[in-house]
Nucleic acid binder design. Structure first.
Length: 481
RNA sequence: GGGCCGUUAGCUCAGUCGGUAGAGCACCUGCCUUUUAAGCAGGGAGUCGCUGGUUCGAGCCCAGCACGGCCUACCA
C-alpha cells in the first residue's frame, strides 16, 4: 500500500487532494436507476472490494448511505488513469465520474470515465467477510468497527434519532433546552464520587458534575418554568454493563408539577420513542419482549421490600438488617459495629432482590427520606418522600422526585449529608450555600426527572452493554507500540 | 476486589504428544474487457502479549506481569 503510494506520487498523482464535488450518493443512483440510466454522475467513497480483469476491473464503492459498483475499462479511461486504477487498494477513498448502466448480471454500476484518488489508505481493512469481531479493537478503533459492521452504524444512527426525539418531545411541550456547568466547585444532585480537576487561573479545585440537578433548579427559581438539558455526567466509579464513567443524562424540571406528572411524562416519552423506532409500543431486548404502553406498574418501595423480605422486617433497622443477612446480602464492612441506616438497607434490598426482577416497565415509588436528600416528603408520612425510579428489563433508567423547595428543610437534609461525608462517606452531598440561597428566593413546586440516555439507547437498539452504545467507551490506554 | 477465559500474520482463526510457525481474506507478481466471497498460477508476510523459569529443545508446561472479554462484587 505504501509502495503504491510512492508509485502514484512518482507518476504525478496527488494521493491526498482537496475538495471533490459529487453529484449523487450511491443509494440515489441505485434507487433512481430508471431515471438516471445513461446519464453521467459523480460519486465518491471508499473502495471496499476490487475485482481485476486484465484490461478492465470492478470495484465496490461505499459511501455513507450505501454501496455501488464501478466498472473501469482501459479503453474508457485511457492508459494513464488505468495505471492509477491498478495502483488502488481496498480501503482507498476515490471519486468516479461516469455513465450509469446495468451489468449483464443486473447490478447498477458506473462505467467510469474519470477516476480520482481522494485519499490513499496505508493500512489494510479488517477481513472482508468475517468482519471485525475483536471487541477490544471495536471499542478502541471504533472507525474500523463502523467501516466493517453495519449493525454498529445502525446503533449509532438510532442513538442520534433517540436524542432528537427526546429533544422534539420536550420542545413541543414547551421545555427550554439549556446548558449548565460541567465544571462545578461543589458537586451534588446524586450520590457518587466525582472526578476532580483544577482551574489554574482561578486557582480553584473544581469537580466534573455528577448531575445537572442543582443548576437546573436555579433556573426554575429564575422563572424558566420548563427546562431540560442533555449532557454528560461523570462518576468516578466502577464500570460494567450499565455503568460508564462518563454517560449522557437527560434531566428535566417542570414547575407546578410533581412526580406523578413526571411518571406520565416518562411513559409518554417511551411510547413516543418506541413508536418512532418501531412503529408500535413494543420491542425486543436480548430476547425479551418489552411493551412500554402506558400505564406502567407503580409499586411502593416499602411494599416491594416487604414482599422481598417479609413485612416484619420493616419494624426496625435491626430487623431489616437481620432480614437482609438472612437473604444472603453482603452488608459491607461495617465501620466499627455500625449497622447501615434503614434507608441504606432498603436500598440494598431493592438493588439485590427487587430491581433485577423488574422486567416490565415499572415505577418504584415513595423512597425513604434518608436516601433522598433533595425530594419532598409525602403528605402522609414524613419519613417517606415523593420519589420514583423507573426500571425496564431490570435496568434503572431514571430517577425523579417532587423537588424539595423548602430551604430550611433542605439545609437540614444537606447538613445530614455533610455529617455523613465527615464520617467518610465520599458519596454524600456537600452543603451548597449558593443553591440554598436560590431556594430562599422561592422555587415553585416542581417535578424533576433524570433519564440515562445511554441505557435507553441500549434497550431500543437491543445492545447488551453500555459500551456498545458509546462511540468511544473509556478504556485503559494501550501500552507499548 | 474475586473467578473463569483469551492474547499466534493487517483481519478471522487453526496449531495434535513439547521437536524447523499454518489456512483463508488482505498485500505483491503474472494471465484475464460484464465480475461481484471473480477465477487461475506464483510470492512476500510473525518479537506466537511481556518477563523469567523448567527442558537437549517451549506457541504448547510453570510463575509473575500487562491488556482485554465474560461473570461476580462495589457503585443512585
Amino acid at each position: 500500500m505504501r509502495a503504491n503510494l510512492e508509485s502514484l506520487r512518482e507518476s504525478g498523482v496527488d494521493p491526498y487532494p482537496r475538495r471533490f464535488e459529487r453529484s449523487r450518493l450511491s443509494r440515489e443512483v441505485v434507487d433512481d436507476f430508471d431515471r438516471l440510466e445513461g446519464s453521467e454522475v459523480t460519486v465518491a467513497g471508499r473502495l471496499m472490494a476490487t475485482r481485476g480483469h486484465g484490461k478492465a476491473g470492478f470495484a465496490d464503492l461505499v459511501d455513507e448511505k450505501g454501496k455501488m459498483q464501478l466498472y473501469v475499462r482501459r479503453d474508457e479511461v485511457g492508459d494513464e488513469q488505468f495505471a492509477v486504477w491498478k495502483l488502488l487498494d481496498v480501503g482507498d477513498i476515490v471519486g468516479a465520474r461516469g455513465e450509469v448502466f446495468k451489468t449483464r448480471s443486473g447490478e447498477v454500476s458506473i462505467k467510469v470515465k474519470e477516476l480520482t484518488l481522494l485519499a490513499k489508505a496505508l493500512l489494510p481493512l479488517p477481513e472482508k467477510w468475517h468482519g471485525l469481531k475483536d471487541k477490544e479493537i471495536r471499542y478502541r478503533r471504533r472507525y474500523l468497527d463502523l467501516i466493517s459492521n453495519e449493525e454498529t452504524r445502525s446503533v449509532f444512527r438510532a442513538r442520534s434519532r433517540i436524542v432528537h426525539i427526546m429533544r422534539d418531545f420536550l420542545t413541543e411541550r414547551g421545555f427550554l433546552e439549556v446548558e449548565t456547568p460541567i465544571l462545578q466547585p461543589i458537586y451534588g444532585g446524586a450520590f457518587a464520587r466525582a472526578f476532580e480537576t483544577h482551574h489554574h487561573s482561578l486557582d480553584l479545585k473544581l469537580y466534573l458534575r455528577i448531575a445537572d440537578e442543582l443548576y437546573l433548579k436555579r433556573l426554575i427559581v429564575g422563572g424558566f418554568e420548563r427546562v431540560f438539558e442533555i449532557g454528560k455526567d461523570f462518576r468516578n466509579e466502577g464500570m460494567d454493563r450499565t455503568h460508564s464513567p462518563e454517560f449522557t443524562q437527560l434531566e428535566l424540571y417542570q414547575a407546578y408539577a410533581d412526580y406523578n406528572v413526571m411518571m406520565e411524562t416518562t411513559e409518554s416519552l417511551f411510547e413516543r420513542l418506541a413508536f418512532e423506532l418501531t412503529g408500535g409500543t413494543s420491542f425486543t431486548w436480548q430476547g425479551r419482549e418489552i411493551d412500554v404502553k402506558a400505564p406502567w406498574k407503580r409499586v411502593k418501595v416499602m411494599e416491594a421490600v416487604a414482599d422481598a423480605v417479609g413485612a416484619d422486617a420493616l419494624k426496625s433497622r435491626e430487623a431489616l438488617a437481620a432480614a437482609a443477612r438472612a437473604a444472603d446480602l453482603d452488608l459491607g464492612d461495617p465501620v466499627g459495629d455500625e449497622l447501615p441506616g434503614f434507608g441504606e438497607l432498603v436500598e440494598k434490598i431493592l438493588s439485590e432482590l427487587v430491581e433485577p426482577k423488574l422486567m416490565e416497565p415499572t415505577f418504584l415509588i415513595d423512597y425513604p427520606l434518608e436516601i433522598s436528600p433533595l425530594a419532598k416528603q409525602t403528605p402522609g408520612d414524613p419519613t417517606i418522600v415523593e420519589r420514583f425510579e423507573v426500571f425496564i428489563a431490570g435496568i434503572e433508567l431514571g430517577n425523579s422526585f417532587t423537588e424539595l423547595n423548602d430551604p430550611d428543610e433542605q439545609v437540614r437534609r444537606l447538613s445530614a449529608q455533610v455529617d455523613k461525608r465527615a464520617q467518610g462517606d465520599e458519596e454524600a452531598h456537600g452543603m451548597d450555600d449558593d443553591f440554598i440561597m436560590a431556594l430562599k428566593h422561592g422555587m415553585p413546586p416542581t417535578g424533576g426527572l433524570g433519564i440515562g440516555v445511554d441505557r435507553v439507547v441500549m434497550l431500543l437498539t437491543d445492545s447488551p452493554g453500555i459500551r456498545d452504545v458509546i462511540l468511544f467507551p473509556a478504556m485503559r490506554p494501550e501500552r507499548d507500540k
